[in-house]
Amino acid sequence: MLLDLSKIFGRSKSSKDFAKERLKLVLIHDRANVSPQFLEMVKGEIIKVISNYMDIDEDSLDIQMTRTKSEDGDRVVPALVANIPIKNVKSSGK
């Protein structure tokens, strides 16, 4: 019997969702010239830091590496774009 940890922890993704996520990572890798593993590490660190201050919806979190024009408009540079749904802001200790 196989143990499905994603169901135990309340995160069940279909194979379609996993395939979609892998495809996103491959496309991002091609655009930014960084490995999918690197982007997953960045995503994990962003989640860890933001979670100190607010509750976020990790299932709806979307972080992408893309390219955009520089401020001077002369070159194209990588850009990290994040859509992070916030459930609740934690107490600031006031």
Results as ranks from 00 to 15, higher is better:
residue 58 E to Q: 10
residue 12 S to E: 15
residue 36 P to T: 02
residue 40 E to M: 11
residue 86 I to L: 03
residue 71 E to W: 00
residue 6 S to K: 10
residue 23 L to R: 13
residue 41 M to S: 10
residue 71 E to R: 05
residue 58 E to V: 15
residue 14 S to G: 07
residue 13 K to Q: 09
residue 80 L to F: 08
residue 35 S to L: 05
residue 55 D to K: 06
residue 91 S to T: 03
residue 62 D to H: 02
residue 7 K to N: 12
residue 42 V to W: 00
residue 75 R to H: 14
residue 68 T to M: 07
residue 3 L to W: 09
residue 24 K to D: 11
residue 79 A to M: 13
residue 20 K to S: 10
residue 84 I to E: 01
residue 20 K to G: 00
residue 28 I to S: 07
residue 19 A to F: 04
residue 60 S to H: 01
residue 46 I to V: 15
residue 45 E to S: 07
residue 40 E to K: 13
residue 54 M to L: 09
residue 20 K to V: 02
residue 11 R to E: 14
residue 56 I to G: 05
residue 13 K to D: 09
residue 6 S to M: 05
residue 82 A to H: 05
residue 17 D to S: 06
residue 9 F to N: 09
residue 66 T to D: 14
residue 82 A to C: 14
residue 62 D to N: 11
residue 9 F to E: 09
residue 5 L to G: 01
residue 90 K to T: 05
residue 87 K to W: 02
residue 38 F to W: 11
residue 12 S to I: 01
residue 14 S to F: 05
residue 54 M to Y: 00
residue 17 D to Y: 04
residue 94 K to A: 09
residue 86 I to K: 07
residue 7 K to D: 10
residue 71 E to A: 14
residue 25 L to I: 08
residue 81 V to K: 15
residue 82 A to G: 02
residue 62 D to R: 10
residue 77 V to P: 11
residue 42 V to D: 03
residue 35 S to M: 06
residue 8 I to N: 03
residue 37 Q to M: 07
residue 42 V to L: 11
residue 32 A to D: 07
residue 29 H to T: 12
residue 82 A to M: 14
residue 9 F to C: 04
residue 35 S to C: 03
residue 85 P to C: 04
residue 49 V to S: 08
residue 35 S to E: 10
residue 56 I to A: 02
residue 3 L to N: 12
residue 36 P to V: 09
residue 14 S to E: 04
residue 34 V to H: 03
residue 82 A to V: 15
residue 90 K to E: 08
residue 88 N to F: 12
residue 64 Q to C: 02
residue 48 K to V: 00
residue 13 K to Y: 11
residue 78 P to D: 08
residue 42 V to N: 03
residue 61 L to T: 03
residue 84 I to W: 00
residue 42 V to E: 05
residue 2 L to C: 06
residue 65 M to H: 02
residue 10 G to A: 04
residue 9 F to Y: 12
residue 85 P to K: 00
residue 78 P to N: 12
residue 1 M to F: 05
residue 29 H to V: 00
residue 65 M to D: 06
residue 16 K to S: 06
residue 19 A to H: 02
residue 24 K to T: 12
residue 54 M to A: 15
residue 6 S to R: 10
residue 49 V to F: 09
residue 75 R to D: 13
residue 19 A to E: 15
residue 83 N to G: 02
residue 83 N to I: 12
residue 1 M to I: 13
